[in-house]
Design a protein around this nucleic acid. Sequence first.
DNA 1: TTATATTTTTAGACGCATCTAATTATTCTC
DNA 2: GAGAATAATTAGATGCGTCTAAAAATATAA
Lengths: 217, 217
Amino acid sequence: MLTRAEEDHLKAVHRLLEDGIASTNAIAERLSTKTSSVTVMLQKLTEKGLLNYQPYKGVTLTREGREQAVALVRKHRLWETFLVEQLGFGWDEVHEVAEQLEHIQSPKLVDKLDDFLGNPAFDPHGDPIPGKDGKVRLRQTKRLEMCGPGESVRIAAVSETTDGLLRLLDSRGLRIGSYLHVQDVHVFDGSMDVKPKTGAPFNLSKTVIHHLQVEPA
Amino acid sequence: MLTRAEEDHLKAVHRLLEDGIASTNAIAERLSTKTSSVTVMLQKLTEKGLLNYQPYKGVTLTREGREQAVALVRKHRLWETFLVEQLGFGWDEVHEVAEQLEHIQSPKLVDKLDDFLGNPAFDPHGDPIPGKDGKVRLRQTKRLEMCGPGESVRIAAVSETTDGLLRLLDSRGLRIGSYLHVQDVHVFDGSMDVKPKTGAPFNLSKTVIHHLQVEPA
DNA sequence: TTATATTTTTAGACGCATCTAATTATTCTC
DNA sequence: GAGAATAATTAGATGCGTCTAAAAATATAA
């Protein structure tokens, strides 16, 4: 069984490997610790068979390590879903609490929570929730940026979840699952006129559009 | 902010004070640690203003300590209620998980959970759930033992929650909130014939009856 | 390609919560 | 009330996860 610190390091490695390599520096940055502390933990996790690690050569996950990391992601996203959908938290205020809840040890709890929520495929941020078997169901999504006039889409994810962006979307009544009809695209500034399912059309700036992942409605 | 170990010790003191004094021995026993470890923690919690403690003289809670302890009890019982009522756990298998969940730090989460569950007054074991203000709503209950033929009651609590007893009650379809009509009391062995709301009457032994707290139905 | 800058690792220390062993208080018993 | 039994505390050690400082390996640039 892993300690909380071990789980945090494992998750950081997994996350960082998603877009490139997991450097000692980046891991330390992510966990707000020092690189020397990270090195020690990498050695320990290697000892436990969760990482492939050679001094100065970088690190990758073993099969077992990946499974454990994915299990943590699953827990994190299920709890976020619970907090937003059931308890009425704002989707921009759940991360910290989910960060704690993901360390609760009880396989039965995770599976029951999954069922309780209706085995959701995506969390409130639109990120896919791995299933019990660790598999994620992928969807074909694209950036709203890539859509043309006349297209009807559903917001599937927000790629950068800064507080500012989340609040902006919130003020427009937009969240994961919202439906949009693209009315017009303005070439000169990259902005877009969109119409929600209900209510009046409005304009979205290039910056916002860039961070919205959508799927065909 | 308290560490997990500190919270565990605080809760143990609170629990033990309920039926008498909280001896260093009893605390250690409860937490599966050694008395020397307990002494150190008592000193630390005193330092933090949560306990009144004098070497060899025993320990009591300060106002602040009691508030924190009650808050932990509140969290524990709310989570147990959630696990049983919402996720479908058996009431005899939630303690361990709730023991973990009670350490989650998020006042907002506790209050939202409370609302989500409909501000329940009692947990699945029939123990009262302190409110946000720390107050508990007391009920007049008595032992089923004390009831006579013709009385209709509702099971309010089980005073000894051993696995064996819980399973026995479960097999009879009995849990907190179940309604019973007392049909007959057998003086020679202290057993009782009772009839549930639905289904056939059955007999409950003196031992079982002794542990059932009931309120007027 | 050699010097310099950056990254990573190692070595040694610290705080926390625990332990064992030894010591000190308190309580019980005759 | 004195000695024995019990309970509680202190002293010192250990494991864990972190830190700082120093050393080693790798990458960059003139």
